[in-house]
Write a protein that binds this DNA or RNA. Structure first.
Length: 422
RNA sequence: GGAGAGGUGGCUGAGUGGCUGAAAGCGCUCCCCUGCUAAGGGAGUAUACCUCCAACGAGGUAUCGAGGGUUCGAAUCCCUCCCUCUCCGCCA
C-alpha cells in the first residue's frame, strides 16, 4: 500500500508506475484521490459535530450534578437530535474509508528508477552470469536420476496426497537436509537470526505481506479455522513485527527461516512442472530484512550477494536477472531473480528472488520504528530466498552426476553427509 | 473440548455511567540541587486521523483485546468473537 499523501503529491509518477507494471487503466489513481477527498471532508464534518455534541453532553453532566434537571432536559433534546445525524455520518465515513482503502490496495508499488521499463520476461536485464552453463549432451535430467536411485517418489506422493507432493527418500532426503543446514549456517554467519515460524497464518498476516487481496488463489486454506498455509516464510516472518514500533537501536532486523511452502500453482502443466521443477509443497530457506528506509537499497544488494554466494559455494552456474517493471510483481519496487543452470534440462531455473518492498508491506502492517523523540517512521522490508530447495537439488544432481550415474557430493556439503557420493 | 477467572499506557496496577486519555508506582527523557552516590526536587513521557498554519505550532476527533448494542454521555452496562490464566479432559 502506498502512502495516500505520496499519491496526492506524486500523482503522475504513480500513474506511470501502474502503466509500467503492465496495467493499462490508471483511472484508479483519480478514483482514489477523489475518494480520499470525500472521505476527509466527511471525517471533518463528523468531527465537528461530535465535538459539539461532546461539549453539550458535558454540560448535561454538570447540570445533573447541580440538580438542574429541567435545563439538562433541554440539552438532552438537542443532543438526541444530533445523535442520529452523527450516526449517519459515521456510517458514510466508514463506507468512504473502505472505498478509499480498497482503491488504495489496488495501486501497485512504484518501481525504483534503476528498474528497466519492460513488459515481459524478455525485457528483464541480465545483471550478471556466473560460471559456464554446462551443455554436455550426456547429462540426464534429474528425474531420470532420482528414478534410477529411488530418491524421489512421485507416485506414492500422488497416492498419499496428490500431484506435486512427492516423498524424498534416502539420498535426496539427506541432501535436502544438508542444504537446509548449510544455508541456515551461512545466514547465521552473516548475522541473520535463525527463526522457526508457524506454517499457518491468519488473514491479517496474509494481508500484511500482500497475498490478499487478489493473490489468495495461490494459497491453500484451512477455512474451518480461518488459516492459510504459508506460501513462503516471508509471510509469518515479516508479520512477526506487525503493528509494532521498534526502537531505533534494534534496526535492522535480519531473520533466516526454513519452512515448507505451499502453493496451489493453479493452471500449470507440461515440462515446466516435470520432476522437481514445480511442486505444491517445497522447502525453502528464506531471508527477511527489516531496515531503515535510507538503507534498503544497499541491503537489497547485500541480500542478493548473499544468495549468489550460496550458489557459488555449491559451484553451480547461475545468472542474476534484474526484473523489469512488467515482470516484477505488484508489491515490489525492485527485484532480482537468481536462476541456476540445469545442465540436464538445458535451461535456467529460478531458485531465488530478492526483493525490496520499501514501505509497501510495512505500511499495511503498521511496522514502524522510533526514529528519534519526535518522529516515528515506516520501515522498509526486504526478502530473498536463500535458497529454494527442490530446484537447487535438481540442478545439483544434474551438475554433479557422473557418466556412470553416480552423483558426487559438493565440497561444502560433505561435513553434513560425510561421504563422497550420494 | 468442559468449568471458572481475566484482558486498561513501555511495565505493574487503580478505576462499575459524566470532572478519566485515563490515579499511583516503576521505567525512560530533560532540568535543578548535592562532592559522596542502590540520595533528593521539578517537568515531561501513547497512537492514528482531520482542520488551520509558510513554518514554529494550535485546535478537534477516535482509541482502555476486537466488533456491535444500550445511553444525551461507556474503560465502566448488554451481546458476539478473539486471546491469556487456573482446574478437568485429551495429547506429541
Amino acid at each position: 500500500m502506498l502512502d495516500i499523501s505520496f499519491i496526492r503529491e506524486n500523482r503522475e509518477q504513480v500513474e506511470k508506475a501502474i502503466t509500467n507494471k503492465g496495467e493499462k487503466d490508471t483511472s484508479v489513481v483519480e478514483k482514489v484521490l477523489s475518494a480520499d477527498e470525500e472521505w476527509r471532508a466527511k471525517v471533518h464534518e463528523g468531527d465537528l459535530l461530535r465535538s459539539e455534541s461532546n461539549t453539550k453532553s458535558g454540560k448535561i453532566g454538570q447540570l445533573m450534578s447541580q440538580g438542574k434537571k429541567e435545563e439538562a432536559q433541554e440539552i438532552i433534546k438537542e443532543t438526541s437530535a444530533m445523535k442520529e445525524q452523527i450516526k449517519e455520518i459515521e456510517e458514510e465515513v466508514k463506507k468512504l474509508r473502505i472505498e478509499r482503502d480498497n482503491l488504495l490496495l489496488r495501486i501497485p508499488n512504484v518501481p525504483h528508477p534503476s528498474v528497466p521499463v519492460g513488459v515481459t520476461e524478455e525485457d528483464n536485464e541480465i545483471f550478471k552470469t556466473w560460471g559456464t552453463p554446462n551443455e554436455s549432451e550426456w547429462r540426464k535430467p534429474h528425474w531420470e536420476l532420482t528414478e534410477r536411485h529411488g530418491w524421489v517418489d512421485f507416485e506414492r506422493g500422488v497416492k498419499v496426497t496428490g500431484a506435486g507432493f512427492p516423498f524424498y527418500v534416502g539420498g535426496v532426503a539427506q541432501l535436502q537436509r544438508a542444504l537446509i543446514n548449510y544455508f541456515i549456517n551461512e545466514a547465521a554467519k552473516a548475522g541473520y537470526i535463525e527463526m522457526q515460524a508457524p506454517y499457518f497464518v491468519n488473514e491479517d498476516s496474509a494481508r500484511g505481506t500482500g497475498q490478499i487481496p487478489d493473490k489468495e488463489d495461490m494459497m491453500y486454506e484451512i477455512p474451518r479455522d480461518g488459516f492459510f498455509n504459508i506460501p513462503t516464510a516471508e509471510v509469518p516472518v515479516t508479520n512477526y513485527h506487525r503493528d509494532e514500533i521498534l526502537e531505533n537501536k534494534d534496526i535492522p532486523k535480519k531473520y533466516v527461516c526454513h519452512t515448507p511452502c505451499w502453493r496451489r500453482e493453479a493452471g500449470s502443466y507440461g515440462k515446466d512442472v516435470r520432476g522437481l521443477n514445480r511442486l505444491h509443497q517445497f522447502d525453502k530457506v528464506e531471508l527477511v530484512k527489516i531496515v531503515r528506509p535510507e538503507d534498503s537499497y544497499d541491503e537489497l544488494e547485500s541480500l542478493r550477494e548473499h544468495a549468489e554466494g550460496l550458489l557459488e559455494a555449491l559451484e553451480l552456474s547461475y545468472r542474476t536477472l534484474l526484473m523489469c517493471t512488467g515482470d516484477m510483481g505488484f508489491t515490489q519496487s525492485k527485484k532480482y531473480d537468481l536462476e541456476v543452470w540445469s545442465p540436464g534440462q538445458k535451461r535456467w531455473l529460478e531458485v531465488s528472488s530478492c526483493s525490496n518492498f520499501e514501505s509497501f508491506q510495512a505500511r499495511r502492517m503498521q511496522l514502524r520504528y522510533r526514529k528519534d523523540e519526535k518522529e516515528i517512521e515506516i520501515l522498509h522490508t526486504l526478502n530473498g530466498s536463500g535458497l529454494a530447495l527442490p530446484r537447487v537439488v535438481s540442478a545439483l544432481l544434474e551438475a554433479y552426476q557422473e557418466e556412470n550415474g553416480k552423483v558426487r557430493i559438493p565440497e561444502v556439503l560433505k561435513p553434513f553427509i560425510g561421504r563422497e557420493y550420494l
